[in-house]
Every structure is written in C-alpha cells, then in structure tokens.
Design a protein around this nucleic acid. Structure first.
Lengths: 210, 210
DNA sequence: GTCTATAGGTGGATAGAC
DNA sequence: GTCTATCCACCTATAGAC
C-alpha cells in the first residue's frame, strides 16, 4: 500500500518554491551542484544525502526519483529565465526593449549562473529529454526574442529580414559568448566579460567590415 | 609482474591511427558514441564490450583505463580539427584565407560531427579536464583564427580592432550557431543549416542595423 | 590478446520501524 | 518525515588460465 504522506501525493500545482530554505530546497540546490559537476549519470542520491547529512532515502519523501529531481531543476531554471526576459517589457521603445532583452540574457547568465548552465550548456542544451512542459516554455522564451526583433524590424531600427532568422543569429551569438565565458579558458573575470559582451554586440550590430 | 605485451608499453609516439579498422579503432569509435550519448559517467567498459561482442577486460589490453580512452578521443578530435583549419592556408589572399577558416570550421562540424561535439559541446567544452597536451593544441587552433583575423585587419578587409577580441567574437558566433544546429530543436536539415550559417556570417560582417 | 572469475565499490529504489 | 536494513543492478579493474 503506498504511503499517502508523500509530497507528490498532494495537489499538482501546489507551490513548493515558497519554503525553499527547508530540506526540499536544500536537496534541490545540492542536486543542482552535483548535476552541473557530473551530469545526470554522475549525480547520485547517496551523494546528495551525504552532503546534507541525511539518509539517501529521505530524499524520496520529496522527489519520486532521480529523474523528477532533475526535471524540477530544469523547470525552475526555465521559469527564472522567463522572469528575467519579462523585465525587458518595461522598455519605452522597440530598440530599448531589444537592448534590454540582451541585458536580461546577460544578467540571467551571470546572476543565475547555475540555472543558465542547466538551460544552455547542459548535455546538449535545454535538457534534451526534459518533460514536454519545460521544452514548451523554453521555446516560448525564444519566441519572446523573436517578438522583440520583429518590433525592431517594424520600427526600422533593424534591417529588413526574417525576424526568426535574425533572432536565431542573435541567440547563437549570445549562446557562444556565454559558452566562452563559462568554459573558463579565457582568463576573463566578470567585469571584463561584461565589457567584451557589449563590444561584441556592438560589432554584431554594425558589422566587422567597413 | 606486469604483462609486457600491452599496447601502452610500446614507444610513446607509435601511430595507431593507421590500423583503425581493427579492434583498437572499433573500441575507440564505440566509446565515442557512448561518451557523446551519456557523458563520461555514463560511458562504461562493459557496454562498449557488449556492443563489440568482446569481454570487458579485452579493452584493457588497448587502453590503460577509462580515462585514457576518453583522453584518446579528445586528442584525436583536436588533431582532426587542426587538419581542417590547416586547409585554409591555401587561400590566395588574407580575406580568402579568413573565409576558408569559417568554411573549415563548418565542414569540420558537419563532416566530423562527433569529433566536433567532443571538442565544443561536451560538458563544458574542450574536455575541461583533458590532458595538458590536448588543451595546448586546442588553444593553438584558436590562435590560427587570431592569425587569420590579424592578416585581415592588416590588409584593411576588417575594421581596426584587437584581433584577439575580434577572433573571440567570431569564435563565439560560430560556437553558438553549431550549438543551435546540434541541439536539433530548430527543424533544420544540413542544407538549410549551411544556408543559414552563411546568412548569419554575412549579417555579422555587415551588421544588423543600417 | 582474449577469456573467466572475482574483488571491491557505487548506485537506485523499497520495506518497515520509529 | 526520517531512519536502518536490504535487494539487486551495474561499475572499474585485476589475476591468471589459455
């Protein structure tokens, strides 16, 4: 007979993020560290337990299994990223909202480094086999950029072009810049990187040739 | 007493790549597949053995341990990439050599997909804890691009700027484009991607704004 | 150079006591 | 909701026969 006392037997949409300072949240945070360090196959319930000084089985009161733990991390990451992007809507003009979109991406990457890695640098990005729901929300985040680009094409700030294709180029450029930074092979601290980031954006906006 | 018959008791620089159709090479190729699929913690000697229909211990006659297997994969990948880049030297002008450098990157990514992934898309790229030797050769490959950029700044084709910084922007853009393609989330076949790749390069060269 | 047998370890997950 | 005890699968690597 199943134990009816488990967290996941409660209603589906209950908000657990609220009490993150308790065990639930500490498990998640610890799992995140291990997941980024060693990937899904290197992450183990026993190691999480050891780090938190609890027994491995305690974790199963909070997460059905290892996969649910990882899925929760990915869902959380996508949600937080969406929050950052959303702030760009406060810009007054299309151009400003576009610029703020890049700013949000940069701030998310540097301010929520671990969640950024989960979404954009893991196995092959965006949790390749994440649950449908997270995949959808990930695409919605990209669509947000497409919409900002569309506005800028309409306003005449950006050259006329397919907004989706343009957005993909911009997305790729951002993706690559962050991958460079997080690889840690370029001896740049955060301040130096922020400077380089905007230089590179400027180059992209106005071209490499005369 | 150690068995003196092992591959790695032979001279260090012996070229094994020659006879890749034999077991040695088949192990490497199979390990590469599993490594890309599941990462280093998901790769197992037993699974390699099962796929090749040999016993797991047979592998140890060819590779000292799991780490040496992975290191060999990374070293091979870096060497092959260098070969692609090198072909760009046949260009007649600085501008042509620069363009051929992008071409080589694209051809390597699409023609040696698996080796590309090992270098640029793995855990955090370029085998974060690869042996010193591979790390050095990886940096040399980047320096090759810096040199091509330098030539183009000198010839006046590219705007005056720090060549290293310029090369980093270009490297990032390429990195991001490939990451998009390999993520498989954008419903592009290889032909469509090649088209998009050059479109995006063109945008980068001449800017997004008027 | 390949095998079988085996040592010694880590891991996911469950049952049932408290 | 946390624990201990436990099952069973899987892992790396070695020893020694052939």
């Amino acid at each position: 007979m199943p134990n009816r006392n488990r967290r996941f037997d409660r209603p589906r949409n209950f908000v657990y993020t609220v009490n993150m300072s308790q065990l639930q949240g500490r498990i998640l945070s610890c799992a995140l560290d291990l997941y980024l360090e060693k990937g899904i196959h290197g992450l183990s319930m026993r190691q999480i337990a050891a780090k938190l000084d609890i027994s491995a089985t305690a974790i199963y009161r909070h997460y059905r299994n290892k996969q649910e733990l990882v899925d929760t991390i990915v869902a959380e990451a996508v949600k937080i990223f969406a929050g950052y992007l959303f702030s760009a809507l406060s810009g007054q003009t299309a151009e400003e909202r576009f610029r703020m979109c890049n700013q949000a991406y940069l701030d998310f990457a540097l301010g929520q480094e671990k969640y950024y890695e989960v979404i954009f640098l893991e196995p092959h990005g965006q949790g390749a086999d994440a649950p449908e729901e997270s995949q959808q929300k990930g695409l919605a985040n990209f669509q947000f950029l497409v919409d900002r680009v569309q506005e800028c094409v309409d306003s005449g700030y950006l050259r006329k072009a397919n907004p989706r294709s343009l957005a993909l180029s911009i997305w790729a450029h951002n993706l690559g810049l962050m991958a460079l930074f997080f690889s840690g092979k370029w001896a740049m601290d955060e301040a130096a990187f922020r400077k380089f980031y905007w230089e590179s954006q400027e180059r992209f906006l106005h071209g490499l040739c005369d």
